[in-house]
């Protein structure tokens, strides 16, 4: 090298803290995502602390307001003791909305986790094995994807009967193909990509290649999709409930089921529609906001 030549390295203005650290920082600067966190916090907090938040018992029947004419039946409009009113049987709507968060969270989360596991398993096998196994598994995925969303869930619940585990499985099965496709596609694309080729050519061991290079890169779309799927799952669970396929136990209130029971009173008691409906929307908005925020912050190329 010529004498006196100076190599200069510019100090990066901000130290990079790796993919996850950067993503986390970007997420915290993403205002919609933060709002999503707030909504999810309200939803999860309500579900976890339901017994503390709810003033009454979700299954108990309470007397009508004192000024109701004798012989009148529910629903009764909101008043201080029953903030969201009382349903047809006189149960406290507020308490039921609060407890409803538990079912939504439980079934929603359960079905997405379950869906990610089945779908991820199938996708990983297909993506890693390739060839014939890939072909067969992906045809199965195609079949499941051909059946429109909630219709598949309806079929499965009709087949397995009503109940929380059945609903969870039904929604999980409708989710799973998406994750299978995502993981498979990601693995295939990455397997062929230049940087894995590069890593392989400099002798990075296969195990390290899988754990450090391939998995993190195919995982990010799964994380985003799972967050967004939580929103869909909550809506689908409520949809099943609305169609009369919700959990049968009256002591475990479910938002969709509560809505079905109230459609007849749309004119007289809109509050019985409004509050459970709002609860569903807030939960779904929360996960959708967070999912979008995650997508933006996990993809470093997706800059504004």
């Amino acid at each position: 090298m010529a004498s006196g030549t100076v190599a200069v390295v510019r100090v990066a203005p901000r130290a990079s803290r790796g993919l996850w650290g950067d993503a986390w920082r970007r997420l915290l600067r993403n205002r919609p995502a933060l709002l999503g966190f707030v909504f999810i916090g309200v939803f999860v907090g309500t579900a976890v602390f339901a017994p503390l938040l709810a003033p009454h018992d979700p299954g108990a029947l309470y007397p009508p307001p004192p000024d109701a004419s004798s012989g009148a039946t529910g629903p009764y409009p909101p008043r201080p003791e029953h903030l969201m009113g009382q349903d047809l049987q006189g149960r406290d709507e507020f308490t039921r909305v609060v407890y409803g968060a538990r079912i939504s969270l439980l079934v929603g989360l359960g079905s997405v986790i379950f869906g990610v596991i089945i779908g991820g398993f199938v996708g990983a096998i297909a993506g890693a094995a390739g060839g014939r196994a890939d072909n067969v598994l992906m045809r199965v995925v195609d079949v499941l994807l051909a059946i429109p969303g909630i219709l598949l869930a309806i079929g499965i619940v009709a087949w397995l009967d009503r109940g929380l585990p059945q609903i969870t499985i039904a929604v999980a099965v409708t989710n799973a193909p998406i994750f299978a496709r995502l993981l498979r596609g990601g693995l295939l694309a990455i397997r062929e990509s230049d940087y894995v080729l590069a890593a392989r050519s400099v002798g990075v061991p296969t195990r390290r290649l899988l754990l450090r290079h391939m998995l993190p890169n195919s995982l990010t779309p799964i994380i985003v999709a799972a967050t967004l799927a939580l929103a869909t799952a909550i809506i689908d669970v409520a949809g099943l409930g609305f169609l009369g396929l919700g959990p049968p136990d009256p002591r475990t209130p479910e938002w969709g089921t509560m809505l079905t029971d109230s459609t007849k009173f749309l004119r007289a008691a809109p509050y019985l529609i409004f509050f459970p409906g709002l609860a569903i929307v807030i939960s779904a908005v929360g996960f959708n906001l967070l999912g979008d925020g995650l997508r933006e912050s996990l993809d470093p190329r997706l800059k504004k």
């Binding site: 030549t5 390295v9 510019r10 100090v11």
Partner: peptide, 8 residues
């Protein structure tokens, strides 16, 4: 201070 200058 702003540059890391490497003099070979």
């Amino acid at each position: 201070d702003e540059l890391a200058v490497v003099v070979p």
